[in-house]
Design a protein around this nucleic acid. Structure first.
Length: 562
RNA sequence: UGGGGCGUCGUCAAGCGGUAAGACACAGGACUUUGGUUCCUGCAUUCGGAGGUUCGAAUCCUCCCGCCCCAGCCA
């Protein structure tokens, strides 16, 4: 028995379902569906819908179908179907044997259309597209009835079967619902139900030359599958009367309830299919799985986890307000998850050589270090130390500000998991004046504690041993667009962030990173979370920055500059 | 302009006539061998505006203002 639940996220859709359950409106259990059109890759906005539909099904012990809404062969393909299946699975959802295609219903849909003709609810209209548009009227003027509106049932039946048989050219005729050309809702002014399109379908091939429109196919597919709650986005609100009109006349005993919610908008990115396709097709990104893309496949390659994405979708809620969610919330969810699960490692992105003058030449030490400071169960690893090291260029300043807790003339700093070292001198390149090497001394007693005199060491920096480290390439990703709402601009390409990708090819990672598996995630201490990219080939590790660590230092310095 | 929706903190979002949850962001502070994590603290006398009903309104009524969607043989 399905019961209203408590303690889970609540929203107006769950309120409606709870009501339906209380009143006993449902014959069986709750049934939802996720109905993407296979003409593109799914993105974070789809993920919101996936989480909603599958989440509802599991919360109410019902079912959620995966249905490919493939009623327009233009642009649809098996590649997209496969990507959608892979991505929804990866997000953590399972539709068992309920994988459906609207194209599997083409014959049934055709019969339903015939029925509509027989009951006088549909007719074949032979106006061309321009004429149909002209006759539709405007927001303020009613439309005019088609001269073909009152054809006999026999003539309509004959014409419609000949449309199917391929006797006519594209656009010669359409099947239209006979509703009301004066309806204030334009959707109800005799909407087109079927169009002739001599285009091969990726699943049905050349079998059909007429294809049902969304409004006709979607509601009937829902009813056929016994969907109880058909959840879609706000822009379909105007189509609801038509949805109900069609189902009422053809499958009245099984009428799904359409509920609309606000689609997701995310700051600093675009989520419209058209714009995403443009980014891919015109090469502004390297593909659907470019780690900067808001696609599920892009986020997966970037290193985001399904848990983080699901949690994000739960956090943003479901309502009917237009929204623009701050990416920082997504980043928060990603960090929250990665902080728990990733081992900590050291990697120097922009190396600066450091020689420890008082450390014996040829000597080396191997320290056992925790993989995670708060989770000892994640085990330990070995970190090697020797006389020549590399530190981050950013961790040394010739003339640092007072609150800078790192290395500079006369300063000392702790090397993470190792000794406290003190600056002695620097070596500059004579031509450029650039600091190319540092000489320091270390305090032997500081390996496992503070200096002998108890003086406080403020800063801790990461490092690698020259003799032990492994080379790596690191790709630093930033937001794809430089303005909050690029989707609002027609020429959104102008708002692309020129610094959305920086490739660093001479990074040094600690020895434990010598062999890494694509997809595995790490925290590079003090830098951020990183993920092994599939481009990692033999001998050379490639890491994607998933998201930087929160950083109160750059915030302070940025503040100083103002 | 006709129709359909929506307006609660910088961004989301609870609230369903009884006197504004929570999250992110932001700002302080504690702790810290990650300027990370964690932990405290602060952050809407006010709910698009104006009237009205009521002992009492973000919640009910009226009018006004603003934003989004619809005139594809796309979904």
């Amino acid at each position: 028995m399905t019961q209203p639940t408590t303690g889970l996220p609540t929203d107006f859709i769950r309120d409606i379902i709870d009501d339906d359950l209380r009143i006993g409106r449902l014959k069986g259990q709750v049934a939802t569906r996720f109905p993407p059109e296979p003409n593109g890759y799914i993105h974070i906005g789809h993920a919101k819908s996936v989480c909603l539909n599958f989440g509802l099904a599991s919360q109410y012990q019902g079912t959620c179908n995966l249905r490919l809404d493939d009623t327009d062969p233009t642009g649809e393909s098996m590649e997209y179907v496969e990507s959608i299946i892979r991505d929804v699975h990866w997000l953590g959802f399972d539709w068992r044997d309920r994988l459906y295609y609207a194209s599997d219903y083409f014959e049934k849909l055709y019969q339903f259309a015939v029925e509509l003709i027989k009951t006088g609810n549909a007719y074949v209209c032979s106006l061309n597209a321009d004429e149909v548009r002209e006759n539709r009227g405007t927001f303020t003027e009613p439309g005019r009835e088609s001269p073909f509106r009152n054809r006999s049932v026999e003539e309509n039946l004959d014409l419609f079967s000949r449309m199917r048989a391929g006797e006519f050219a594209d656009g010669a005729h359409v099947l239209r619902a006979k509703i009301d050309m004066a309806a204030p809702n334009i959707v109800m002014r005799d909407p087109v139900l079927y169009r002739i399109k001599r285009e091969p379908h990726y699943r049905t091939g050349a079998q059909w030359v007429i294809y049902p429109m969304y409004d006709f196919a979607h509601c009937l597919s829902d009813a056929l599958e016994g969907i109880t709650h058909s959840i879609c986005t706000l822009e379909f609100e105007n189509n609801r009367p038509l949805y109900d009109w069609i189902v009422e006349r053809l499958i009245p005993e099984n009428r799904p309830r359409q509920i609309e919610f606000a689609r997701l908008n995310l700051s600093y990115t675009v989520l419209s299919k058209r714009r995403l396709i443009e980014l891919v097709k015109k090469g502004y990104v390297q593909g659907w799985d470019d780690p900067r893309m808001p696609t599920v496949t892009g986020m997966r390659r970037r290193g985001y986890t399904p848990e983080a994405i699901r949690n994000f979708c739960a956090q943003i809620g479901v309502a009917k307000n237009d929204n623009l969610i701050d990416v920082s919330l997504l980043e928060h969810c990603v960090r929250e998850d990665l902080n728990e699960r990733t081992p900590r490692v050291m990697c120097v992105l922009r190396p600066l050589k450091v020689v420890i003058d008082n450390y014996p030449e040829g000597q080396e030490e191997h320290f056992e270090c925790q993989n995670h400071p708060q989770r000892p169960e994640l085990g330990v690893k070995q970190v090697s130390f020797s006389r020549v090291l590399y530190i981050e260029r950013d961790d040394f300043m010739e003339d640092p500000p007072k609150k800078y807790h790192r290395l500079g003339p006369g300063r000392e700093v702790r090397l993470r998991n190792a000794y406290v070292i003190k600056f002695e001198r620097m070596v500059k390149d004579e031509a450029s004046g650039e600091v190319v090497e540092l000489h320091c001394t270390y305090a032997p007693e500081t390996l496992n504690g503070p200096p002998a005199d108890g003086r406080k060491i403020q800063g801790v920096i990461h490092w690698v041993s020259e003799a032990h480290c492994v080379p790596a390439e690191v790709r630093l990703y930033d937001r794809l667009f430089s303005i909050e709402d690029p989707g609002a601009e027609e020429d959104f390409i102008n708002d692309l962030n020129p610094d959305s990708l920086k490739i660093l090819t001479s990074c040094y990672a600690e020895a434990s990173l010598e062999k890494v598996a694509p997809g595995s995630q790490y925290q590079f201490e003090r830098l951020g979370y990183f993920c092994v990219d599939p481009d990692t080939a033999s001998g050379r590790a490639v890491f994607n920055r998933i998201v930087p660590l929160r950083d109160s230092w750059t915030r302070i310095t940025a503040g100083d500059k103002k």
